[in-house]
Design a protein around this nucleic acid. Structure first.
Length: 284
DNA sequence: CCCAACTCCTGGGCGC
DNA sequence: TGCGCCCAGGAGTTGG
């Protein structure tokens, strides 16, 4: 294969485009399915899976990086994929041979077809929770998440206001999910590069905030259109890789020339996360 | 309320 | 070849 994986990259964290890709795939198949039985790994991160037993799934939603799987009894199964979480359907029995299977739900559809929804997660950074529908008070990051990127109320001015509330580095602020929901390390670096904004900035003017919002929407939309970014672990609900890894302009390119100005891109840790940017185009 | 530091996990890259 | 060190990362938790 001609594509060289950045050696520093260990895994792909599912961000908004990856989660949205999975949501679109599982939603029609899950809608109306009755949970006959469920099981999980003993960790408290996964045991809530069994609380869905006896309920029927309705149409899957998403908020940021969280999958929202509403049940027909006024509750909701919230799924976070963490770093390596994968959802998939299987006919027949749960796959006992997979050591990384963390939860499963045996389903039956209105037409009587049996099926299993499986949640596999090598590193166990994912987690599951059953909550009263729409009540995210027990999931603080979700409860405090900023607007969805395409929320019509997220105007450039509103985004500028949301950014203004922190004096932390912009990169850290974006990853907190509070100014906008669903952005992780990859799409943050891509959007900052695209909008030519330094990741360590602490205050943005209105014009740069507007540019950053445009860039975020652009990179997230491209990610969705290409079915997500697969560096190693990410697979969609059908087991397929995404295509956005071939389009990355900044993430994972530390030391390589900037595609705008040829200056070598810099990499450094910001808030314990690798960040790559162009010291010339993205100067402070 | 806010934030920094710590924690959770494991495969695989790498040095020796 | 094989062993063992250590990194990557989102978000929950804890403590200030």
């Amino acid at each position: 294969m001609w594509f060289m994986w950045p050696t520093s990259v260990q895994a792909t964290m599912p961000e908004l485009p990856e989660v949205e890709t999975i949501r679109r795939q599982i939603a029609p198949r899950l809608d109306g399915a009755l949970v006959l039985e469920a099981g999980s790994h003993p960790s408290a991160k996964f045991t809530p899976a069994t609380e869905a037993t006896g309920a029927r799934f309705t149409m899957a939603g998403r908020r940021g990086k969280y999958l929202l799987l509403p049940l027909d009894d006024g509750r909701e199964l919230v799924v976070h994929l963490g770093m390596t979480g994968q959802l998939r359907f299987r006919s027949g029995e749960p796959d006992d041979s997979d050591p990384y299977l963390r939860a499963w739900w045996r389903l039956t559809h209105a037409d009587g077809a049996p099926e299993v929804l499986e949640f596999a997660d090598v590193r166990r950074f994912g987690r599951l929770r059953v909550v009263p529908a729409g009540d995210y008070s027990s999931i603080p990051t979700l409860a405090a998440a900023g607007p969805e990127p395409w929320d019509p109320e997220l105007t450039p001015h509103r985004f500028w206001e949301l950014l203004g509330k922190s004096k932390r580095a912009l990169k850290t602020h974006l990853l907190s999910q509070r100014p906008i929901a669903g952005v992780g390390n990859i799409y943050a670096d891509e959007a900052l590069w695209l909008s030519e904004i330094n990741p360590k900035s602490t205050r943005l003017g209105k014009e740069r905030a507007a540019r950053l919002l445009d860039a975020l929407r652009s990179v997230l939309q491209q990610g969705i259109d290409l079915g997500g970014t697969t560096l190693r672990d990410y697979r969609n609900a059908e087991g397929a890789s995404g295509g956005n890894q071939h389009e990355l302009l900044a993430y994972g390119r530390g030391g390589q020339p900037c595609l705008r100005c040829d200056e070598p891109l810099r990499s450094a840790q910001i808030d314990a996360r690798t960040t790559t940017w162009c010291p010339r185009c993205q100067a402070r």
